[in-house]
Write a protein that binds this DNA or RNA. Structure first.
Length: 306
DNA sequence: TCAGGATTTCCTGATT
DNA sequence: TAATCAGGAAATCCTG
């Protein structure tokens, strides 16, 4: 049974359209990103439809969780029509907080036990790698950042989304689908998308997240930054693209533009010089610096939830 | 319908 | 030589 049929059986269509468009899991960009970033001896050969298998369950988005559930619905021959919208609507961090009894309570004895067992295997498998990678790459800023990144409200609370709120509205306002940054404002968007009072219900900017915000969020959100970019000077806001084309493809995926390249992305980045959202870093390739009109990336801002 | 913002696309030339 | 940078110009998409 494929995901779509599970969705149909479980009446999850509405939920599915509300899932944020978290980029790396989308099939068209997967080959390059998987090749570039991950080495997972246990992953399925069908990586394009099992992206979640390659990352820690703590990093799963709501859509990853749904995909995971649908895979196990298939393997256990579970009757998906008995699944409710609410029971599947949660992200990875929420899922990981559930104990065995809770899983059985939500999914029933057969599927619940199966899911619990598989989840424990996933958690064990990735725990060591997840921690060591964070410590290696983000020793200086991850803890601070994690203090102010709170898990998204489980998407079972779909009453937050109005009936006519579109997918793009949801996705553009929720950053990643896993975390919501507290008040990482946009100086020029001016729509209040990052204002705390608008964190939920979701208010969108007309065109969604801006490029510089997308870049910033990759940098301050280690789970989404699988070696794509790194801070050169965290305090000064200097950062470097490590996998420029992969970032460009992710950006293109977000904008539903499969022809995006680093060359085009970098042109958009250069327009930010004039607006002082970015500053030039002379003589260094793939290196940029946040300017005075950018916000949300400073350690103090993140720590204070500004 | 129109204006304006934010890219996107294409291009040429310079630099590494 | 390829990759990247710089920036002009025009096109595109979207919103108000």
């Amino acid at each position: 049974m494929c995901l779509s049929s599970v969705l149909t059986c479980a009446n999850l269509t509405m939920y599915h359209t509300a899932v944020p468009d978290v980029l790396p899991q989308q099939p068209s960009v997967l080959p390059s990103i998987n090749t570039l970033q991950f080495s997972n001896p246990g992953c399925s050969s069908n990586i394009s439809s099992h992206w979640y298998r390659q990352i820690s369950p703590h990093c799963w988005t709501a859509e990853d969780v749904l995909e995971w559930i649908s895979d196990h619905v298939e393997s256990t021959k579970f009757d998906a029509s008995t699944l409710s919208l609410a029971c599947c609507a949660m992200d990875g961090p929420t899922l990981c907080q559930m104990n065995r009894d809770q899983m059985i309570g939500v999914f029933g004895p057969q599927l619940g036990l199966h899911l619990h067992k598989n989840l424990q295997e996933h958690k064990t498998k990735y725990a060591e790698d997840f921690v060591s990678k964070r410590e290696f790459d983000y020793k200086d800023d991850y803890d601070l950042a994690s203090l102010t990144m709170e898990p998204m409200t489980p998407l079972g609370d779909t009453e937050y989304l109005s009936d006519n709120q579109s997918e793009s509205e949801y996705s553009s306002s929720s950053n990643s689908g896993m975390f919501e940054f507290s008040n990482l404002g946009s100086p020029e968007s001016g729509s209040g998308e990052s204002d705390p009072e608008f964190s939920y219900p979701l208010i969108s900017t007309p065109r969604g997240t801006h490029l510089w915000e997308f870049i910033r969020d990759i940098l301050i959100h280690p789970e989404r930054n699988q070696g794509l970019m790194k801070w050169e000077d965290r305090r000064e806001g200097v950062f470097k693209f490590l996998k420029s084309e992969a970032v460009a493809q992710m950006w293109g995926q977000k904008k539903k533009n499969s022809s995006m390249t680093y060359e085009k992305l970098s042109r958009a980045m250069r327009y930010y010089y004039k607006r002082e959202i970015l500053e030039r870093v002379d003589g260094r390739r793939l290196v940029y610096k946040f300017g005075k009109n950018s916000s949300g990336w400073k350690i103090e801002e993140i720590a204070m939830g500004m």
